[in-house]
Amino acid sequence: MIDLIHVTRRFGAATAVDDISLSVAQGELCVLVGTSGCGKSTTLRMINRLIEHSEGEIHIDGQQIRRFREETLRRRMGYAIQSTGLFPHWTVARNIGLVPRLLKWPATRIQARVEELMALLGLSMEAFAGKYPHQLSGGQAQRVGVARALAADPDILLMDEPFGALDPITRESLQDELRELQARLHKTIVFVTHDMDEALRLADHLVVMHQGRIVQQGRPLELLREPADDFVESLLGGEDRGLKEAALLPVSQRMLPLGPRLLARERIGQRASLREALSLMLWRHAERLTVVDDDDLPVGELSLRRLVGARSDD
């Protein structure tokens, strides 16, 4: 649980963050999004006191962060950044074990934890434990970065554009992995990005910042449907909004139960997004799709009319 209450940060005469209030609930993934220089990174770095706030209060689980020693506070939070910040002179295993070592865990416990995390992030122990960061691909390095952030099992995870430097394919697969991790671990995550697609994919709670202020915050669908002003609307993609919304809605929301008609030839999983369904229809020139469950058994059907039809806020 993180609360920012009327927080301001000034650098000399300039105000980087201007009187923002924000509350991130336990287990929520909060994404701060905005153009560069909007104060989103500054906001993130104020939470672990890499930057001190000038005014206002920041609370972690109801306690002011200034009541902790800086180091103690930071060791309670995971921290992952775009450049990964892996120590080039340490092996992968040693990098991951950093915070547990700072917390003076016994060696056997650190070893066990490192193994657990590497398994969690899909990094095989034999192949990667002894490698140095420069021997890793961008995606592998970022996985190690996330593993390191999770090492001491912190409740809070701060992520500053962690996937920003990766190619689109690696980025998407890591985004999916993060969602899956989050579904299992229920961390409280503050995630900074300038990529709106990434923000929409990941966010439980989306915060749009502009010139040091929060211009709108809420659930991604709420923002898509009712942007507060032109800036938010343009950030959300203007004419692409329909597709962005479709990307957030699962097929299961719009499908109809199986009818008496013959099953359509093209199939789509019920967890797929409406955007994927639309793309498949366009590609296959199909007006109807058969919706299947995880075992590839038909559970319903989706027509083009139904897909684009009146919104159902079921």
Binding site: Y79, I81, G85, L98, V99, L102
Partner: peptide, 14 residues
């Protein structure tokens, strides 16, 4: 590398 130092401090090293 500034990123390495940032990470080191952000992880809670003194």
């Amino acid at each position: 590398d500034a990123g390495v130092i940032d990470a080191a401090r952000g992880m809670g090293m003194s």
